[in-house]
Computed example of a mutant assay.
Amino acid sequence: MYSIKQSSGNDLTRLPDNAPITYHVAGFDRIQFVSDIIQAVTLDGSKPILDLHFECDGIRAGGRITVRSANQYQTSTLYERLRSVQGVVKVEQVRPV
């Protein structure tokens, strides 16, 4: 079971290093929306994508992306990168219960 907690880069609970982290991302559908999400995650090459699922309907785009982040700093940086993608409205980190 998972719970969704809206997070900012500063209030993330400490997670074990190398733990899989899942984010729900929502925004406005546009050409290359998902490509830009992937580019934000893989920008420095240190966060492998473990799972990716997005659905778009021509207006809205939403989905989840699971990555393995090496440390807390990378987790905060990734959150900020996802928020900065054009068209992103909301980023939520899914936490195991």
Rank of each mutant, 00 (worst) to 15 (best):
M1F: 13
Y2K: 05
Y2A: 01
I4V: 14
K5R: 15
Q6H: 15
Q6N: 13
Q6V: 05
Q6D: 06
Q6W: 08
S7H: 13
G9A: 15
L12T: 12
T13S: 01
R14Y: 15
R14Q: 14
L15E: 10
L15S: 11
P16K: 14
P16F: 13
D17P: 00
D17S: 06
N18G: 04
P20F: 12
P20N: 08
P20Y: 08
I21Q: 07
T22E: 09
Y23W: 09
H24R: 13
V25P: 07
V25F: 00
V25R: 01
G27T: 13
F28S: 13
I31W: 08
Q32I: 06
F33M: 02
V34D: 03
S35M: 11
S35Y: 06
I37Q: 02
I37H: 05
I37R: 07
Q39K: 13
Q39N: 14
A40D: 04
T42S: 06
D44N: 09
G45V: 04
S46H: 15
S46W: 15
K47W: 04
P48R: 11
I49K: 03
I49D: 15
I49M: 09
I49Q: 12
L50G: 10
D51V: 04
L52H: 04
F54P: 00
F54D: 07
E55L: 05
C56K: 11
C56S: 15
D57S: 04
D57M: 12
D57F: 00
D57V: 03
D57N: 12
I59H: 02
I59C: 02
I59S: 10
R60A: 05
A61R: 10
G62E: 08
G63F: 02
G63P: 01
R68M: 15
S69F: 01
A70G: 12
Q72R: 09
Q72N: 01
Q72M: 02
Y73V: 02
Y73T: 06
Q74W: 10
T75W: 09
T75D: 05
T75S: 13
S76W: 02
S76E: 02
T77G: 03
Y79C: 12
R81A: 01
R83C: 07
R83I: 03
S84K: 03
S84G: 11
S84A: 06
V85A: 01
Q86R: 11
Q86I: 09
V88Y: 00
V89N: 15
K90S: 04
K90L: 04
K90P: 03
V91S: 01
E92F: 09
Q93L: 00
Q93E: 07
V94D: 05
P96I: 09
V97A: 09
V97Q: 15
V97G: 07
